[in-house]
Simulated assay, not measured.
Amino acid sequence: MSGKNEGRLSRRAVLGAGIAAAGAVAGGLTATPVHAKEPTLLYDRQDWGARPPRGTIDIIGPPTAIVVHHAVWPNTMDFSWERAALTSREIQDLHMDDNGWKDAGQQLTISRGGHVMEARDRSFEAIRQGLNVMGAHVGGHNSYTIGIENEGTYTDPDTVVPSGQFGSLAQTCAWLCERYGLDPHQAIAGHRDFNDTICPGEALYRRLPELRDRTARLLAEW
Protein backbone atom coordinates (compact mmCIF):
# COMPACT_ATOMS: atom_id res chain seq x y z
CA MET A 1 0.00 0.00 0.00
CA SER A 2 1.79 3.13 -1.18
CA GLY A 3 0.90 6.76 -0.62
CA LYS A 4 -0.69 8.42 2.43
CA ASN A 5 -4.33 7.34 2.39
CA GLU A 6 -5.40 7.35 5.62
CA GLY A 7 -7.93 -6.55 18.01
CA ARG A 8 -6.47 -8.98 19.74
CA LEU A 9 -8.08 -12.31 20.64
CA SER A 10 -6.24 -15.39 19.39
CA ARG A 11 -2.60 -16.26 19.05
CA ARG A 12 -3.27 -18.48 16.09
CA ALA A 13 -6.01 -20.67 14.71
CA VAL A 14 -5.49 -23.80 12.66
CA LEU A 15 -7.54 -24.56 9.58
CA GLY A 16 -8.96 -28.08 9.61
CA ALA A 17 -11.99 -30.14 8.68
CA GLY A 18 -14.25 -28.43 11.17
CA ILE A 19 -11.76 -28.93 14.03
CA ALA A 20 -9.24 -26.41 15.37
CA ALA A 21 -6.08 -28.17 16.48
CA ALA A 22 -3.90 -26.90 19.28
CA GLY A 23 -0.15 -27.33 19.51
CA ALA A 24 3.22 -25.64 19.59
CA VAL A 25 3.99 -23.24 16.75
CA ALA A 26 6.70 -20.89 15.52
CA GLY A 27 8.09 -18.40 17.98
CA GLY A 28 6.87 -20.38 20.97
CA LEU A 29 3.25 -19.37 20.41
CA THR A 30 0.34 -21.73 20.96
CA ALA A 31 -2.50 -22.44 18.57
CA THR A 32 -5.87 -21.51 20.06
CA PRO A 33 -9.04 -23.17 18.71
CA VAL A 34 -11.23 -20.16 18.08
CA HIS A 35 -12.79 -20.62 14.67
CA ALA A 36 -11.97 -23.59 12.45
CA LYS A 37 -12.12 -21.53 9.27
CA GLU A 38 -9.59 -18.90 10.32
CA PRO A 39 -6.29 -18.74 8.40
CA THR A 40 -3.66 -21.26 9.44
CA LEU A 41 -1.00 -18.75 10.56
CA LEU A 42 -2.97 -16.13 12.44
CA TYR A 43 -1.37 -13.76 14.97
CA ASP A 44 -2.73 -10.87 16.99
CA ARG A 45 -1.11 -7.54 17.82
CA GLN A 46 0.21 -8.72 21.17
CA ASP A 47 2.11 -11.48 19.38
CA TRP A 48 4.13 -9.12 17.18
CA GLY A 49 4.55 -6.34 19.71
CA ALA A 50 2.28 -3.62 18.37
CA ARG A 51 2.34 -0.13 19.79
CA PRO A 52 -0.95 1.10 21.25
CA PRO A 53 -2.95 3.21 18.81
CA ARG A 54 -2.85 6.98 19.07
CA GLY A 55 -6.55 7.31 19.84
CA THR A 56 -9.65 5.14 19.71
CA ILE A 57 -10.16 2.74 16.80
CA ASP A 58 -13.87 2.60 16.08
CA ILE A 59 -15.77 -0.57 15.24
CA ILE A 60 -18.11 0.04 12.31
CA GLY A 61 -20.49 -1.96 10.15
CA PRO A 62 -19.42 -4.88 7.96
CA PRO A 63 -17.44 -4.16 4.79
CA THR A 64 -18.68 -4.86 1.30
CA ALA A 65 -15.21 -5.00 -0.30
CA ILE A 66 -11.90 -6.71 0.50
CA VAL A 67 -9.01 -4.59 -0.78
CA VAL A 68 -5.66 -6.19 -1.64
CA HIS A 69 -2.51 -4.07 -1.23
CA HIS A 70 1.23 -4.57 -1.54
CA ALA A 71 3.41 -2.90 1.05
CA VAL A 72 6.15 -1.67 -1.33
CA TRP A 73 8.53 -3.51 1.00
CA PRO A 74 11.64 -5.60 0.23
CA ASN A 75 10.97 -8.98 -1.41
CA THR A 76 12.76 -10.85 1.34
CA MET A 77 13.34 -14.57 1.20
CA ASP A 78 13.25 -14.71 4.98
CA PHE A 79 9.85 -16.33 5.51
CA SER A 80 10.22 -16.66 9.29
CA TRP A 81 7.80 -15.58 11.98
CA GLU A 82 10.45 -13.20 13.32
CA ARG A 83 10.63 -11.41 9.97
CA ALA A 84 6.83 -11.18 9.80
CA ALA A 85 6.70 -9.60 13.27
CA LEU A 86 9.45 -7.12 12.38
CA THR A 87 7.65 -6.14 9.17
CA SER A 88 4.42 -5.49 11.07
CA ARG A 89 6.24 -3.23 13.52
CA GLU A 90 8.00 -1.37 10.72
CA ILE A 91 4.77 -0.78 8.80
CA GLN A 92 3.02 0.45 11.93
CA ASP A 93 5.92 2.83 12.63
CA LEU A 94 5.75 4.16 9.07
CA HIS A 95 2.03 4.75 9.23
CA MET A 96 2.07 6.36 12.66
CA ASP A 97 5.34 8.29 12.59
CA ASP A 98 5.66 9.27 8.91
CA ASN A 99 2.03 9.38 7.80
CA GLY A 100 0.72 10.70 11.10
CA TRP A 101 -2.08 8.13 11.39
CA LYS A 102 -3.38 6.82 14.70
CA ASP A 103 -2.35 3.22 13.92
CA ALA A 104 -1.48 0.91 11.04
CA GLY A 105 -3.79 1.84 8.19
CA GLN A 106 -4.83 -1.65 7.07
CA GLN A 107 -6.73 -4.19 9.12
CA LEU A 108 -4.53 -7.19 8.23
CA THR A 109 -0.99 -7.84 7.01
CA ILE A 110 0.29 -11.01 5.34
CA SER A 111 4.03 -11.65 5.31
CA ARG A 112 5.89 -13.25 2.42
CA GLY A 113 6.09 -16.32 4.63
CA GLY A 114 2.30 -16.48 4.86
CA HIS A 115 1.87 -15.23 8.42
CA VAL A 116 -1.43 -13.37 8.83
CA MET A 117 -1.11 -10.50 11.29
CA GLU A 118 -3.72 -8.33 12.94
CA ALA A 119 -2.55 -4.87 11.88
CA ARG A 120 -5.04 -2.24 13.04
CA ASP A 121 -6.22 -2.40 16.64
CA ARG A 122 -9.47 -4.31 17.34
CA SER A 123 -9.56 -5.84 13.86
CA PHE A 124 -9.90 -9.45 15.07
CA GLU A 125 -12.50 -8.41 17.63
CA ALA A 126 -14.56 -6.76 14.89
CA ILE A 127 -14.16 -9.53 12.29
CA ARG A 128 -15.30 -12.19 14.73
CA GLN A 129 -18.45 -10.16 15.33
CA GLY A 130 -19.08 -9.82 11.60
CA LEU A 131 -18.07 -6.16 11.79
CA ASN A 132 -15.06 -4.03 10.80
CA VAL A 133 -12.87 -1.24 12.15
CA MET A 134 -12.45 2.10 10.41
CA GLY A 135 -9.18 1.82 8.54
CA ALA A 136 -6.90 4.21 6.67
CA HIS A 137 -5.85 2.27 3.58
CA VAL A 138 -8.10 3.41 0.69
CA GLY A 139 -8.66 7.15 0.40
CA GLY A 140 -12.35 8.01 0.39
CA HIS A 141 -13.49 4.38 0.74
CA ASN A 142 -12.50 3.32 4.25
CA SER A 143 -16.02 3.17 5.63
CA TYR A 144 -16.96 0.04 3.67
CA THR A 145 -13.67 -1.72 2.91
CA ILE A 146 -11.30 -4.01 4.78
CA GLY A 147 -7.64 -3.90 3.74
CA ILE A 148 -5.05 -6.67 3.46
CA GLU A 149 -1.45 -5.49 3.17
CA ASN A 150 0.91 -8.00 1.54
CA GLU A 151 4.60 -7.74 2.38
CA GLY A 152 6.67 -7.21 -0.74
CA THR A 153 6.81 -5.11 -3.89
CA TYR A 154 4.90 -6.54 -6.86
CA THR A 155 5.19 -3.70 -9.39
CA ASP A 156 7.17 -5.85 -11.86
CA PRO A 157 4.74 -8.30 -13.50
CA ASP A 158 7.42 -11.00 -13.43
CA THR A 159 7.87 -10.87 -9.66
CA VAL A 160 6.82 -14.15 -8.06
CA VAL A 161 4.33 -13.98 -5.21
CA PRO A 162 5.45 -16.68 -2.73
CA SER A 163 3.07 -19.63 -2.65
CA GLY A 164 2.76 -19.44 1.13
CA GLN A 165 1.76 -15.81 0.99
CA PHE A 166 -0.76 -16.33 -1.81
CA GLY A 167 -2.22 -19.37 -0.05
CA SER A 168 -2.67 -17.42 3.17
CA LEU A 169 -4.21 -14.57 1.21
CA ALA A 170 -6.80 -16.96 -0.22
CA GLN A 171 -7.51 -18.43 3.23
CA THR A 172 -7.89 -14.93 4.65
CA CYS A 173 -10.23 -13.81 1.89
CA ALA A 174 -12.33 -16.96 2.42
CA TRP A 175 -12.45 -16.30 6.16
CA LEU A 176 -13.62 -12.73 5.55
CA CYS A 177 -16.14 -13.71 2.90
CA GLU A 178 -17.57 -16.33 5.27
CA ARG A 179 -17.72 -13.87 8.17
CA TYR A 180 -19.37 -11.14 6.09
CA GLY A 181 -21.46 -13.21 3.69
CA LEU A 182 -19.60 -11.86 0.65
CA ASP A 183 -19.24 -13.26 -2.86
CA PRO A 184 -15.47 -13.36 -3.57
CA HIS A 185 -16.04 -12.65 -7.26
CA GLN A 186 -17.75 -9.40 -6.32
CA ALA A 187 -15.95 -8.41 -3.14
CA ILE A 188 -12.21 -8.92 -3.77
CA ALA A 189 -10.55 -5.93 -5.42
CA GLY A 190 -7.18 -4.22 -5.73
CA HIS A 191 -6.27 -0.82 -4.29
CA ARG A 192 -6.02 0.58 -7.83
CA ASP A 193 -9.71 -0.15 -8.35
CA PHE A 194 -10.45 2.69 -5.90
CA ASN A 195 -7.54 5.15 -6.08
CA ASP A 196 -4.97 6.40 -8.59
CA THR A 197 -2.15 4.03 -7.63
CA ILE A 198 -0.22 1.06 -9.02
CA CYS A 199 -0.96 -0.86 -5.80
CA PRO A 200 -1.11 -3.87 -5.37
CA GLY A 201 1.41 -4.09 -8.21
CA GLU A 202 0.97 -5.80 -11.55
CA ALA A 203 2.21 -9.21 -10.39
CA LEU A 204 -0.39 -9.39 -7.64
CA TYR A 205 -3.19 -7.53 -9.41
CA ARG A 206 -3.19 -9.85 -12.40
CA ARG A 207 -3.65 -12.80 -10.02
CA LEU A 208 -6.83 -11.40 -8.48
CA PRO A 209 -9.08 -13.52 -10.78
CA GLU A 210 -7.18 -16.59 -9.56
CA LEU A 211 -7.54 -15.38 -5.97
CA ARG A 212 -11.29 -14.97 -6.36
CA ASP A 213 -11.65 -18.48 -7.81
CA ARG A 214 -9.45 -20.03 -5.14
CA THR A 215 -11.38 -18.25 -2.41
CA ALA A 216 -14.67 -19.49 -3.85
CA ARG A 217 -13.36 -23.07 -3.87
CA LEU A 218 -12.38 -22.83 -0.21
CA LEU A 219 -15.83 -21.55 0.67
CA ALA A 220 -17.40 -24.41 -1.25
CA GLU A 221 -15.24 -26.93 0.61
CA TRP A 222 -16.24 -25.42 3.95
Rank of each mutant, 00 (worst) to 15 (best):
A21H: 14
A85H: 01
Y43S: 03
R8P: 03
G181R: 13
S123H: 03
A104E: 00
G167F: 13
P200D: 02
V14G: 04
A50W: 00
A104Q: 00
K102H: 06
F166K: 05
A20T: 12
P39S: 11
S88P: 01
Q186C: 11
R212Y: 10
G113I: 05
L86W: 07
A31Y: 06
R128Q: 14
Q129S: 09
E82P: 01
S10M: 10
G55H: 01
L42W: 15
P74H: 05
G114H: 04
A187I: 09
I146P: 00
M77A: 15
V67E: 02
P200G: 06
D47E: 05
V138C: 04
I110H: 01
C177Q: 07
D93N: 06
T215P: 02
G114T: 08
V67D: 02
P62L: 10
R83Y: 13
M1S: 05
V160Y: 13
A26N: 06
T32V: 14
Q46L: 08
R212T: 09
A84S: 10
V133E: 04
E38A: 15
S88W: 00
F124T: 05
P157K: 13
P53H: 00
A31H: 07
H95R: 02
Q186H: 15
Y180D: 08
R179W: 03
T76R: 04
H95T: 05
H70F: 06
T159H: 14
L41N: 14
A136C: 07
L218M: 15
Q92E: 14
A84E: 07
P62K: 10
A187W: 06
R11H: 14
S88R: 03
S123C: 06
G113Y: 01
D156N: 15
L108D: 00
Q92T: 10
I198W: 11
A22Y: 07
R206D: 08
G100W: 04
P209I: 04
W222F: 15
V68D: 05
A50H: 00
V25T: 13
R207S: 12
D47S: 13
P184V: 11
E118A: 03
T197A: 09
L182R: 08
L182C: 05
R207D: 07
T64G: 14
W222E: 13
M117T: 03
G190P: 00
T145W: 02
R128M: 14
L86Q: 11
H137D: 06
H70C: 11
G7F: 03
N99M: 08
V14K: 08
R8I: 03
T155V: 15
Q92V: 08
G152A: 08
V14S: 14
V160H: 15
C177H: 06
V25P: 01
D183C: 10
H69G: 04
G3D: 12
K4V: 14
E210I: 10
G61Y: 03
D97R: 03
D47K: 03
L108S: 02
L182E: 03
N132R: 09
